[in-house]
């Protein structure tokens, strides 16, 4: 089963990390990811630009309206996500726990129903 791990955190906290703190978190997470990469079970990892850059499109009546800002104003924001291939929820939970070790981030685990791989080569991504 494919799972998405949605990462929620207070973006004010995350954006105030120093470069060194940020790098340390990413390095630790990459070490954990490597285990899944070696098994061929790690999908894309995505980090989003803060919600100040977010735009939301909604329907109001018969009209599509474009709104500035994220879908919902919440204390913690969706800051990124991972995709992994795991055999059971327990396994994803185990992986998520190792990934977030020492961090106050919240992960929401959601099984994926449709995954179309797309055509991006991955070179478009920025590592950090």
């Amino acid at each position: 089963m494919l799972y998405a791990l949605l990462c929620y955190h207070d973006e004010d906290v995350v954006t105030s990390w120093s470069k060194a703190e940020d790098d340390a978190v990413l390095a630790k997470r990459r070490r954990v990811q490597q285990g899944m990469i070696d098994q061929g079970r790690m999908g894309p990892a995505v980090r989003l630009v803060p919600t100040s850059a977010a735009t939301t499109i909604r329907v109001s009546g018969n009209e599509q309206i474009v709104l500035d800002g994220p879908f919902a104003e919440t204390k913690e924001q969706l800051l990124g996500f991972y995709m992994v291939d795991c055999d059971s929820l327990d396994e994803v939970i185990e992986f998520a726990k190792r990934l977030k070790e020492g961090e106050s981030v919240t992960f929401e685990i959601r099984p994926i129903r449709i995954f179309e791989k797309g055509v991006l080569s991955g070179k478009e991504t920025l590592a950090s």
Binding site: D12, T15, S16, P50, S52, L67, D68, G69, E73
Partner: peptide
């Protein structure tokens, strides 16, 4: 600078559709 940016983000969150606030941030 960090503090000004932090408060500007707060202001944009309160007034998310103001282009000048987006511009200044």
């Amino acid at each position: 600078c960090d503090e000004a940016i932090r408060l500007m983000r707060l202001l944009l969150r309160l007034f998310p559709a103001e282009p000048e606030i987006m511009g200044l941030l």
